[in-house]
């Protein structure tokens, strides 16, 4: 019963978000054609006569009433068809597939890194409350964490990309490269990943660190920590076995909620580093009013966020025995 309500909840959320994704872009001024053909005032605007315009609108199905378009979209979606991009003139699903792997690589590695680092540093900081390591970490992470991601990205590009010339400044792979081995390809990809991933880690680690430190400080004052000390257990063991697990409980939910922010940060970072992920694609799709592509990209992002919440739910169940149903 409990599982059914949960699944019903997820389905409702997905349906609601799909509707939003459909209608919101259509409320923006302009339509795909105005940007496809060049907006008035741009260099060499292509002026469409009414007949051609109507033909094109009909071609993309944009002449039908809005609700009819919505019904068509939903029916196609049921069949797994995400539609046809008006700007790229290609199936949305294949465009997304090409971009999604890069975003997942970027978000995946940086999320794992900042969560792991934030949790460990937060725990160490709280355990040495008021000590040198605590104050040092607090100052450092608070100051780096307050950089906006696009600004930090530009700083890193200027410093490590341009001045020191250590890392490439754009893309996910070197263009026109013929790799001699998979290892070389992986190294090239990693080389391109470091700067954007570092930007994301630095901008997000402060939040997790503070959450963990706070949560840990609450746990340290609990009676069961004293019980553990009274057993003669070593500090390190108490930190790991008794304190961490309890402190992680509130963190899990918070991290799942932050995945949404993470994605919005990724749009900026991908744009700054010209990293060919979903974020940059989304930026382009908004610029060109590419409705089908926008819907597809938003749908993927929604699914990622819901998946993150689902994972958090599962982790929470594993961490907290009080929530388990027998």
């Amino acid at each position: 019963m409990h599982q059914i309500t949960k699944i019903a909840g997820y389905v409702t959320i997905i349906l609601a978000v799909i509707s939003f994704n459909f209608f919101l872009p259509r409320f923006m001024p302009g339509d795909p054609l105005s940007f496809l053909t060049g907006a008035p005032g741009m260099d060499m605007p292509i002026v469409l006569d009414e007949a051609t315009r109507a033909k094109l609108l009909a071609y993309y199905g944009l002449d039908k009433p809005l609700l009819q378009q919505f019904a068509d979209y939903m029916i196609k979606l049921m069949h797994g068809d995400l539609g046809w991009s008006t700007y790229y003139n290609a199936p949305v699903s294949s465009i997304l597939a090409g971009r999604l792997k890069w975003t997942l690589l970027l978000i995946g590695t940086s999320t794992l890194l900042y969560i792991a680092l934030g949790i460990v540093l937060g725990a160490i900081s709280a355990w040495n409350r008021g000590g040198k390591s605590d104050v040092g970490l607090l100052l450092l992470l608070l100051s780096v964490g307050s950089f906006p991601p696009f600004f930090l990205g530009m700083l890193l590009i200027i410093l490590f990309g341009v001045k020191l010339n250590l890392f490439p400044v754009f893309g996910a792979q070197s263009p026109f490269m013929a790799y001699s081995s998979p290892v070389e390809e992986a190294m090239d990809i990693l080389h391109h990943l470091i700067l954007p991933a570092t930007t994301l880690v630095i901008t997000h680690i402060g939040g997790v660190y503070l959450l963990m430190r706070n949560s840990m400080l609450n746990v340290i004052g609990e009676d069961y920590i004293l019980t553990a000390r009274a057993k003669g257990l070593a500090e390190w063991y108490i930190l790991r076995k008794h304190a961490m697990k309890n402190a992680l409980l509130p963190i899990t939910t918070m991290i799942a909620l932050r995945v949404g922010f993470m994605i919005s940060g990724t749009i900026l970072v991908e744009t700054v580093f010209a990293y060919p992920g979903v974020g940059m694609l989304l930026f382009d799709a908004v610029m060109y009013r590419d409705y089908p592509l926008l819907q597809g990209a938003f749908l993927i992002i929604t699914l990622v966020i819901i998946a993150a919440n689902f994972v958090a739910d599962m982790v929470y169940l594993r961490l907290d025995p009080r929530l388990r149903h027998d």
């Binding site: 009676d223 069961y224 004293l226 019980t227 009274a230 003669g232 008794h242 697990k245 309890n246």
Partner: peptide, 23 residues
């Protein structure tokens, strides 16, 4: 630490909070 628990044990007050809820 070798004395605590082994030689002298302490039963803390308030068992509702003195036991670790997740172990």
């Amino acid at each position: 630490r070798k004395i605590r628990g082994k030689e002298i044990a302490m039963i803390l007050q308030n068992p509702a909070t003195a036991l670790n809820p997740v172990l």
